[in-house]
Amino acid sequence: MENKKKKFKILRYRPETDDAPHYETYEVSYRHETSILDALNEIRDTQAPDLSYRSSCRMAVCGSCAMMINGVPHLACKTFVRDYEKVDIITLEPLENFPIERDLVCDISDMVEKIERVKPYIIPIDKAKPLTEDFVQSPRQLEKYRQFAQCINCGCCYAACPQYKLNKEFIGPAALTLLYRYNHDNRDAGTPQRLEILNQDSGAWGCTMVGYCSDVCPKLVDPTSAIQLGKGASAFDYIKHFFKKNK
């Protein structure tokens, strides 16, 4: 590594021995290619073997290493020390809005439960189709949901979401995006079932369109627009039911 050095202030917490989180400071050398994850690995291997954080793929696709980097949710593997040349110290903390477990590890089980709640699977339009045939899905039809299928479930959007911060019942950006993704897949017939989830107060209407989730999304999924489009569908559904009731 080159001679450039950078200080890191890292939140430390071990539930068995610590009453409250505290910070510790480390310093590592870095070069142009060094990611925050590389720096963390270096700190763990040479200075703090008891430092806990999640990581796996190193290529921004597994979603493990999301954390607060100078107060902003990012993937540690896709954020580079070189981008913090102007600051003296890089602060690392676990993702906001999730309970802390240990050091940089937080409990994401609430998000996972919500992702699984939206019926994130095909409810088939044609159950009898044999396994020798595909569905016709034009590139344009694919394009309707493709972007919203790119979510890696890293949790950055939940850490950014002001609504989720206030109200943990809110189903949140990633889950609503996934809901929209399946509703707009022409192989799927599950929209009525998912609209029930979407229409709830904890569904799309819980969002106040701040848009910070889209700003921080490392995969440019843009949950805000999925939720906005979801609101449109939900409103239409409401009006439809209203007219049905009044017939």
């Binding site: 095909i122 088939p124 020798t132 016709v136 192989r187």
Partner: peptide, 23 residues
């Protein structure tokens, strides 16, 4: 293998498509 890939198609895998809309 092909049967398994069609199974994933039925389960929603966003396979890249031909202009005609086939896998």
């Amino acid at each position: 293998t092909t049967k398994e890939l069609y199974q994933l198609e039925h389960w929603g895998c966003p396979w890249s498509r031909t202009p005609e809309g086939h896998v």
